[in-house]
């Protein structure tokens, strides 16, 4: 939150993630129901870059901790941080940052390359990093072993891969629809 300009992007993207939680679950063409908040996390990483993505998710989590019902299904308050899935919330914070960091490295890509870059960044931030912390959270809170926790979250991976693809398409459309939006800005 260093400059006023960043502050407005941060607040606006935190709002986008919150709204993605308010939109009822969406049924994808082949029947995978998904909630959109983790898509918001990937999108923030890809479009805002690592630093501002970090602050965006931090702002959202602070507002949730203070009691605003901004998570999907109207959840909020400190209780969400005591749930077995709380590791995923930390994963959101660092996943969005990792996603932004990867996207920065490939900011020059255009066309199909941009699709691939955004897809790869979403997978790294939105699946690899996010699930790493989610699994660590399950291990700590539910006393599962790594393999048990990994198996428990495996069922969500296909849905999240769809979200990565959707995120790549979105980043692609945004860059096409708003040529003035620069992906390499800090």
């Amino acid at each position: 939150m260093t400059s006023t300009r960043s502050l407005s992007y941060i607040a606006l993207f935190a709002a986008v993630i919150a709204v993605f939680g308010l939109i009822p679950k969406i049924d994808m063409p082949f029947g995978v129901p998904i909630t959109l908040q983790s898509l918001g996390i990937m999108l923030v990483g890809c479009l805002l870059g690592p630093k501002r993505a970090f602050y965006t998710v931090l702002l959202l989590l602070v507002a949730v901790a203070l009691g605003l019902p901004l998570l999907a299904g109207g959840r909020g308050g400190l209780a969400v941080f005591t749930a077995p899935s709380a590791g995923f919330l930390l994963g959101w914070l660092l996943g969005a940052t990792a996603c932004g960091w990867c996207m920065r490295r490939m900011a020059g890509a255009t066309g199909k390359g941009l699709l691939a870059a955004a897809f790869l960044s979403s997978i790294i931030g939105g699946i690899v990093v996010m699930y790493a912390f989610g699994i660590l959270g399950l291990m700590a809170m539910a006393h599962l072993t790594f393999a048990q926790a990994g198996l428990a979250v495996l069922v969500f991976i296909p849905g999240d891969l769809v979200k990565c693809a959707l995120c790549a398409l979105l980043v692609h459309s945004v860059v096409r629809g708003m040529p003035s939006w620069r992906l390499d800005r800090d």
Partner: peptide, 10 residues
């Protein structure tokens, strides 16, 4: 300020 902005824009 950031939280206020966020809620308004949500």
């Amino acid at each position: 300020l950031a939280i206020g902005l966020m809620l308004r824009f949500a």
